[in-house]
């Protein structure tokens, strides 16, 4: 379990990073928190000729929370956001998701953007970013673009990034009045990837109806999976018990999840329905908490 030989680069500014990516592209991997990359190198699942360590690039180090939303730079660690009271207040769903990522030691090193770029569909953040309609700010030496989370995740461990691009930050729009969201997952052990997970977000209107509901699942498909039918089923309702039972049934009947050594497709079908129902039920609890 020793990595193959590679050339280590330690650029100090973003232009230098992008130059290196332009030059080495396919043969390079970017090192930020290293919580997925280093094990993959040690298992020799990856053997890049060049490793570009971005940890010295100070312009990627910060997050900024203002009225328009939250911008999270490529070097912001999970734990930094998790322990920010302002972020917790502004995005309870994100806070809840962060606390479910692995263990504190891993959250101390792992980065938010690193997890998104890694694009593990059983991870917490990809689903949450889709639910929050976040945008990925992507740069290369010659271009700059913004990709909506929903288009960013292409397949398991495959994002929209090409080999010359860096995910420099993610933008999460501010949540409107009455918007509430929760994240929950079922794992074998605390900190494991989800057998099934669900980010559930919606906005309570003044008439006590939930609107614009988003339901995004982890661990059931090669990418975060939006359950549009279920979203339509619940949006505009009061999330009464009948609605909850109905949406659970709908999810169980319509989902066609993946199977792996950890659990069966049948399990995922059944339990995704359960955690979607439970997540939606918690939106009602949150409505009481924010007195909409």
């Amino acid at each position: 379990m020793k990595p193959s030989r590679f050339t280590y680069h330690a650029p100090t500014d973003l232009d230098e990073v992008l130059d290196l990516l332009a030059k080495y592209g396919d043969e390079a991997k970017v090192l930020a928190g290293g919580q997925s990359l280093i094990p993959m190198l040690n298992f020799r699942l990856l053997a890049p000729a060049h490793l570009i360590d971005i940890n010295r690039v100070s312009e990627l180090r910060n997050y900024l929370l203002d009225d328009s939303g939250l911008n999270v730079g490529a070097l912001v660690r999970h734990r930094e956001l998790e322990t920010s009271p302002e972020v917790e207040l502004a995005y309870p769903i994100l806070h809840e998701g962060l606390t479910n990522i692995a263990h504190v030691q891993i959250r101390n090193r792992g980065t938010v953007c690193g997890s998104l770029a890694h694009a593990d569909s059983a991870a917490e953040l990809p689903s949450i970013m889709v639910a929050l309609d976040a945008s990925m700010n992507v740069r290369s030496q010659s271009s700059q673009r913004s990709v909506r989370a929903e288009e960013f995740f292409r397949f398991h461990l495959t994002s929209d990034l090409d080999s010359s691009e860096l995910l420099v930050s993610v933008d999460i729009p501010a949540l409107g009045t009455g918007t509430v969201g929760v994240f929950d997952e079922i794992t074998r052990r605390k900190g494991d990837f989800a057998l099934v997970g669900a980010a559930v977000l919606g906005t309570w209107d003044s008439g006590g109806k939930i609107q614009d509901c988003r339901i995004v699942c982890s661990g059931v498909a090669p990418t975060p999976l939006r359950l549009r039918e279920a979203e339509q089923f619940v949006s505009g309702t009061d999330l009464s018990d009948d609605v909850l039972v109905g949406v659970q049934q709908l999810v169980m009947e319509s989902l066609e999840p993946t199977e792996d050594i950890h659990t069966s497709a049948e399990y995922r079908k059944k339990v995704t329905g359960v955690i979607v129902r439970r997540g939606l039920a918690r939106l009602t609890d949150q409505r009481r908490a924010i007195h909409v």
């Binding site: 079922i186 074998r188 659990t263 399990y267 339990v271």
Partner: peptide
């Protein structure tokens, strides 16, 4: 007793 086996 994995979650899978318990539900099974």
């Amino acid at each position: 007793l994995t979650p899978q086996r318990v539900l099974a």
